[in-house]
Structures are given as structure tokens and as C-alpha cells.
Nucleic acid binder design. Structure first.
Length: 512
RNA sequence: GCCGCGUUGGUCAAGAGGUUAAGACGCCUCCCUUUCACGGAGGAAUCACGGGUUCGAGUCCCGUACGUGGUACCA
């Protein structure tokens, strides 16, 4: 950005219709990073103008997701603020005034076409060359509206309460162009854009009117949104021109899309390809359809926003791991890509792994505790848990991995991978472990060095290579071929558990 | 169909006329480790295509192809 005068104000404006998509969170994030970089405000506005699509709980869900990501709006329905209300349904009366102003100026008109009229028109005009006919300058003269009806007729119908909408009167043969922060010069021919509905029959505005009116009233300086909006940008530009003047219009930035394995990322891709798509778990209250979230899958919020930020933006350096603060510092809209980015779950996991490594055991602890608790492992000793986390965190990619990687520190393994030791098992080894248990039992100072030295000297005495005994020992204590140093594990779980686990394993081997 | 936007390895990407075309993820090999990881060293793999412009093009221009978005009284 060149020079920014006045306070930066950006907004994220979701409609409360369901879960929060990857792309949505990234839009929030870019908005937020940009605002905070310039010391500006981040506003959350709820675009609930379509009452038929309202979904219970969706708004709270959005707050929760943002909060989990570490992003708190400066203004929102929940947080309040000087430009409220922040829910468009509560601003309903406001929009009518502007729609009427447009009518007076000749930039909009009343239309009385019913749903059936519109369907009929589309059916009649539909052809191979024109599979989706638009309500535009070419056909509006055939419809029921202020152009084809007399003023008297129009007024009479309005007075009688005949349902009607207000449509924008798109000029013909006008070039509409604007300078997008990401795409730079973008231009459209007005004859390709249709007379969009501005005010619906129920009195609610459509997105097109509401976004312009609210961005103006809320003093938005920079409007970032997904690229799917680029096609309707000319409508918004025109509305700005007619209502408030182009010099008042915020700077637009149309963000590239996040793609799935096959085109645009959809919530179904998640279940299909085995990765989460929403920020947090979401179950649609109407259909009961469940969509998995990154949070529940075991992602750390730091990793989640980090991976999202890097999908479409990079700092220009080789650095890839950024905290929120670092991103705010480094972010620049100029370095946001034009092209869509395909989401790569493997790379996403790598980010999480990095963040697990970066985080200190203490900060991971509350979440690890929850993971264990969800599997009925109750941990009371925080100090002990801390030690365990430090021991295993390099082995965890997702937070949920902490269960498998640390459960054996809290209880005996349910299953022992005996197949891993059986091929090389013999009586000598059995005697070794029996004797080792006796030695451990009489040990007075339970520390790693002692445990290991006892093991090695006994092995030497028996003339068995220690390496051939370490794997069996590991299986006995852990259950499988993984985890930190065996003697450290024995040290942590204590003398009683160590001896007990060796004995359990020994009997299992014999019985097989 | 029409309109818009886009196109550097499998993926994320650096690159703003002259580079052996960075780096990361993933994959493979090796080292470390008598487990699994972490860490370290290597390797394979790329400028969609065709024309220009230029001494010289991934970089500029024009086409083509492909992808993607829109084409609702949804956002």
C-alpha cells in the first residue's frame, strides 16, 4: 500500500447459514492482518438478509471459530460498536431509503414480475447460445415493471400492496472498471450485467444493496472478499457511483479461491478425501449433516491460521512458520497471489507438527489433557504430564496423536506387538528378563543410569547383545515399536509398573 | 453459451528481460538412532501450447488450450 490516510476499517461479512469454511477463515485472516498492520479496526457484520437460509447457532459458531483462531472483532453484533446494529436483518428499514433514492434518480425501478413470470421468461429465452437468460436491458421491456407500466399503474399496484422488488437499472454500453488491489485493472461491459434485484419483495435488501450501504455507513476503507464476487463487482461499483460517489468507495481486493482436489473446495471434499474443511466441527441442525473441523482433528490454532495465510500469500522470504504477530508485521496485500491455491493436507499437517515442536510442553498441556480425557485417561499430576509431553511431542503431528504416543505412561498397554519379538525370542532371553526384574526390584535408586547399567551388565554377563534385548523390552513397556528411549520410559513409569509389564509380557509370550 | 479471473515441479511457491529457474511439503537414498520420531546430507521432478517483440523471454504483446468463478427476490 502506498499511503493510507485515516483509520483503516475492514469487515468480514458472513451469512449465518452454516459452518465456516477454510476459505472463509482465510478471508477473515487477511482482513484482520491488513487492519492490524495499519492499526485499524476489524468489523464482523452478519449478512442475514436471506431469512429462508437462517440457521440456528451459525452466528455463535462463527464467533467461536474466530475466537479459537485468536481473532477478536473490534465491532460485531456481539462486541458492539458505534456503527451498529451489525446484523443486517436489524438494519432492514435503512436500505429502503437508499433503494427509493435510486428510483428517484432513475438508477433503479420497480418490478412486479412473479416467480412464474420470471421462470416463463427464462424458459422462453433459453437457447443453446444463451442457456441462462438475464433480466437485462434487452428483455426488461417485455416484463412487468416501471418501464412497461404507466406511473399510475405502478402507483396503484404499490398502494394495493402487490408484491414487488426494486431492480437496478444497468446502463447499456458503458465500460465499468476499477482498480483491484490484487487483480489491478479489471473492467466489464455494462451490457453483460443484469438488472440485479436490490430490494426483495419481503423488504429485505439483497447482498448487492446491503454491502454497499453498510460499507458506506460503517466507513469501511478496504473491502476484501473471495473472488467469486468479482463478477458482481460492476453492480457494486455502479451503486457506489449512484449513491455515495466513487471517491467514497473502499478499495477492493478479490482474494483467490482455495481449491480442493477437484476444483473449488467444498465441504464434501473433506469426507471424500479425509481432511477437515471447516474450522471447527459443525452439524447442520436441519439436515444433521456433519462436517469435521480442524480443531477437533487435532490442529493447533496457530498452525491453522499459519497454513491458511500461506495459501495465497508469502512474505517473499524463505520463512514459512509465522505467529499471528509476525504475520501482522509481514503481511502485505501486494504479495497475495492472483491465482487459486489447491489445499494440500500433507503440508497442513507439517505446519501443525512445526507448531507442536515450537510450543512449550506447558502450553500444550491443557489440550493434551483434554485429548487424554476424551479417551478416559485422567491425569492429575501436571508436572508428570509436562515431562511426558516433552518426551513425546516430537513424535506428534496432530494433537490427537498425543494419546497414542503417551497413553502407556499412564496405563499398561492393552495390546503387545509380540510378533515383533517372537522370531528372535528364546529361553535365554526369558531368563534374562526374569533376572532383570529381580535386580530392578532390589534397586534402591530408581534412575535412568542405574536402570540402563543394570540392563547392560546383565546382558554382558549372559552374553547377549543388549540391542537384541532392547526391542523386546520396549514392546513389553510400550506395546509397540515407538516412543522415546526405553530406559527413560521405565524410569518414568516407575519400578512397580516396569516389573509388572515385563511379567505380563513374559506370560503372554509363554502362552502363545 | 456469454462474461470475468487465472496458468512456474504432484502441491505451496521465489522470480518483476540475461539465474546452473530459490525454498518448503510430499516421495526416494544415505547418516544419526539396535524402536518410532526429530535432526543432518543427497536425489528425482517445473516455466500449458503457438506465434511475435528483443542480441536475449518464465518474465513484455497477441492468439489457443485448459482451469476456475459468475450468469437467483443466495450470499
Amino acid at each position: 500500500m502506498q499511503n493510507i490516510n485515516g483509520k483503516v476499517r475492514v469487515r468480514f461479512a458472513p451469512s449465518p447459514t452454516g459452518g465456516l469454511h477454510l476459505g472463509g477463515v482465510r478471508t477473515v485472516l487477511y482482513n484482520y492482518l491488513f487492519a492490524k498492520k495499519f492499526g485499524g479496526d476489524f468489523i464482523l457484520r452478519i449478512e442475514d438478509t436471506d431469512q429462508t437460509r437462517f440457521v440456528e447457532g451459525a452466528e455463535d459458531y462463527i464467533y467461536n471459530c474466530l475466537s479459537w483462531c485468536g481473532i477478536e472483532p473490534d465491532e460485531s453484533p456481539k462486541h458492539g460498536g458505534p456503527y451498529g446494529p451489525y446484523r443486517q436483518s436489524e438494519r432492514k428499514e435503512l436500505y429502503k431509503k437508499y433503494a427509493e433514492e435510486l428510483i428517484e434518480k432513475g438508477y433503479a425501478y420497480y418490478a412486479f414480475d412473479t416467480q412464474e413470470d420470471l421462470e416463463k421468461m427464462r424458459a422462453e429465452c433459453k437457447s443453446d447460445e444463451n442457456p441462462s437468460p438475464q433480466y437485462d436491458s434487452k428483455i426488461r421491456m417485455r416484463m412487468k415493471n416501471s418501464f412497461t407500466l404507466s406511473t399510475e399503474e405502478v402507483n396503484a399496484m404499490i398502494n394495493e400492496g402487490v408484491p414487488h422488488v426494486i431492480r437496478i437499472n444497468i446502463p447499456s454500453n458503458e465500460s465499468i472498471s476499477f482498480n483491484d488491489l490484487i487483480h489491478h485493472e479489471v473492467s466489464f461491459d455494462s451490457s453483460t450485467v443484469d438488472d440485479k434485484v436490490l430490494l426483495k419483495a419481503d423488504g429485505m435488501p439483497t447482498y448487492h444493496l446491503a454491502v454497499v450501504v453498510d460499507d458506506y455507513l460503517m466507513k469501511i476503507t478496504h473491502a476484501f472478499r473471495g473472488e467469486e464476487w468479482l463478477s458482481s463487482a460492476p453492480v457494486h461499483i455502479l451503486l457506489w457511483k449512484y449513491l455515495f460517489g466513487l471517491d467514497q468507495m473502499p478499495q477492493w481486493a478479490h482474494l483467490p479461491l482455495i481449491l480442493g482436489p477437484n476444483g473449488k473446495l467444498s465441504k464434501r471434499d473433506g469426507a471424500k478425501y479425509g481432511f477437515p474443511v471447516y474450522a471447527m466441527n459443525w452439524t447442520d441442525p436441519r439436515s444433521n449433516e456433519f462436517t469435521e473441523g480442524f480443531k477437533e482433528r487435532g490442529f493447533l490454532p496457530e498452525a491453522f491460521i499459519n497454513l491458511l495465510a500461506l495459501l495465497g500469500w508469502n512474505s517473499g522470504t524463505e520463512k514459512e512458520v509465522f505467529s499471528l504477530e509476525e504475520m501482522i508485521d509481514q503481511f502485505s496485500i501486494e504479495r497475495v497471489h492472483k491465482s487459486g491455491a489447491k489445499f494440500d493436507y500433507e503440508k497442513a499437517k507439517w505446519f501443525n507438527q512445526e507448531w507442536i515442536k515450537i510450543n512449550a510442553a506447558e502450553s500444550l498441556l491443557p489440550e493434551v489433557k483434554k485429548v487424554l480425557l476424551s479417551k478416559s485417561v485422567v491425569v492429575e499430576d501436571d508436572e508428570y504430564l509436562n515431562t511426558i509431553i516433552t518426551l513425546v511431542k516430537d513424535r506428534c503431528v496432530l494433537m490427537t496423536d498425543f494419546f497414542e504416543q503417551s497413553v502407556y505412561f499412564f496405563k499398561n498397554p492393552d495390546y503387545l506387538d509380540l510378533e515383533a519379538i517372537k522370531p528372535k525370542w528364546n529361553e535365554e532371553k526369558k531368563y534374562f528378563f526374569e533376572e532383570y526384574c529381580n535386580k530392578l526390584d532390589s534397586m534402591t535408586n530408581w534412575n535412568v543410569i542405574e536402570i540402563e547399567n543394570t540392563f547392560k551388565s546383565l546382558a554382558a554377563e549372559k552374553n547377549i547383545k543388549p540391542g537384541e534385548l532392547q526391542l523386546p523390552m520396549r514392546i513389553m513397556l510400550v506395546g509397540g515399536k515407538f516412543g522415546p528411549a526405553v530406559f527413560e520410559i521405565a524410569h518414568q513409569i516407575g519400578k512397580t509398573a516396569t516389573i509388572q509389564r515385563i511379567n505380563i509380557a513374559l506370560t503372554q509370550i509363554i502362552n502363545q
